[in-house]
Write a protein that binds this DNA or RNA. Structure first.
Lengths: 236, 236
DNA sequence: CTTTAAAAAACTTTCGAAACTCTGTTGCGT
DNA sequence: ACGCAACAGAGTTTCGAAAGTTTTTTAAAG
């Protein structure tokens, strides 16, 4: 009841349950609900997402090529494992790509880019301004906004391939961040950093954006690495 | 008839028709049998590869995330289009990754790496030494050996992620090369270049390997770009 | 003759069951 | 008791048909 569906399917568009399952599964892997290395059996997934085997398989197949899921022929799927080494590897490349894409965006981004940065920052800032309590409660919303802000920053980059390759790296970084987050206090000073980045970006100070981003991301990685032993079974 | 299957499935290993279909389909896209932009309809594929819809879908799904296939919800799959701009983009990143991975391999590769480079070069050289006629006839074999040589060169790289991201770029480069090959004479001087690269690699002259590789690859890209108008519908 | 709307054909997407493979167990032989 | 082989259970992989969209065709009205 309530409001009848107010959104109109103008031309059509894609319900596509396969895509929906993929998103949810990805989310559940990123936030550790399916821990690294755990088995993704047919029965369990079918029960969890209420989709058929084929549909699940398609979603898993896609996640596999993003490196979040591994497959052993005849033995099904598992969540990709984590390790300090892998984190350092992912992180180094991600930071580099992000910096390059952001610098290029600042130098060549158009009106659409500026608008994107502005609005996505605004949304992020609103959540980050909240008191700690509420900020934690709405953390899934923060995740979306944080991703949107970083995506917006690099969205002006002229190399489609650099952006394409960056995407899965962001996911892996987010997984590591979330896995470690349960074992450490929430850092609240990122808010200021985001503000500085936005400021530099909109003022078209490319070099400075690169510097700030690199610092911002490297610090995050260090923090996560510091707490690695607590969420990675056999990591020193 | 002939020899009964002499290969033993020791522990098992993966028949996995899905993987097989994927390989063949990828090959057919790379060599232009399915031209850029062409539709990959269910019926056609089912007839070509003799697999069920679900299996096809899984293969397509995987190829999609490598960027060789595109999907529009509700409208099925198409072969990814080509353009001069895309080629320049892919090429720049591929060259950079290849150079970095190769240099790292030369500096840190162990015995296994050396052996790989040695044997894969040997196989490649044997084919490239053939007279033009035969060399062309066995071009599919050359493709495999060429790929194996380049893979071997970078296989010592310590960054798993750099290698992982490099892989799909190689495929795209190969597609462009093959598409343009029908419109230009086969260049025969690559043979010497491969030899120089092998020499420098096994002598652990990292810088030189990087230089040679970059030149080698950049020249290829330029050659392909020069013939672009002939195989890209609307490219200048 | 053009435009619009309804019906049909073609196609994509999803499903659930059949076929097959792996894993752990039980029973037999040494 | 130990090792090996056949057996049973669980799980993965593949298939072909049903359900749902998009595109084309057809027909009617302006």
């Amino acid at each position: 009841m309530a409001a009848a569906s107010s959104r109109r399917k103008v031309t059509s568009s894609a319900a596509l349950v396969s895509h929906d399952v993929q998103s949810r599964l990805k989310g559940d892997i990123l936030d550790g609900r399916f821990p690294p290395g755990s088995k993704l059996g047919t029965a369990l997934l079918q029960e969890t997402y209420e989709a058929s085997v084929g549909t699940l398989r398609e979603a898993l197949s896609h996640l596999r090529s993003e490196g979040l899921v591994e497959m052993e022929a005849g033995r099904g799927f598992r969540v990709a494992p984590v390790s300090a080494e892998d984190l350092r590897d992912v992180s180094a490349l991600y930071i580099e790509f992000e910096e390059r894409a952001a610098v290029d965006s600042v130098r060549h981004g158009g009106d659409a880019w500026e608008t994107d940065v502005l609005t996505s920052f605004h949304r992020l800032a609103r959540i980050e301004a909240l008191p700690r309590e509420e900020r934690i409660q709405r953390s899934s919303e923060w995740l979306l906004c944080h991703r949107a802000f970083h995506d917006a920053l690099v969205s002006g980059c002229r190399s489609r391939w650099l952006l394409r390759l960056r995407a899965p790296l962001y996911d892996h970084m987010e997984r590591y961040r979330l896995l470690s987050q349960k074992h450490r206090p929430l850092s609240m000073h990122k808010r200021r950093e985001h503000e500085l980045i936005r400021e530099a970006a909109l003022s078209r100070r490319a070099e400075e954006v690169g510097e700030l981003l690199r610092q911002h991301l490297e610090e995050t990685t260090q923090t996560v690495l510091r707490h690695a032993p607590q969420f990675m079974p056999g990591a020193g």
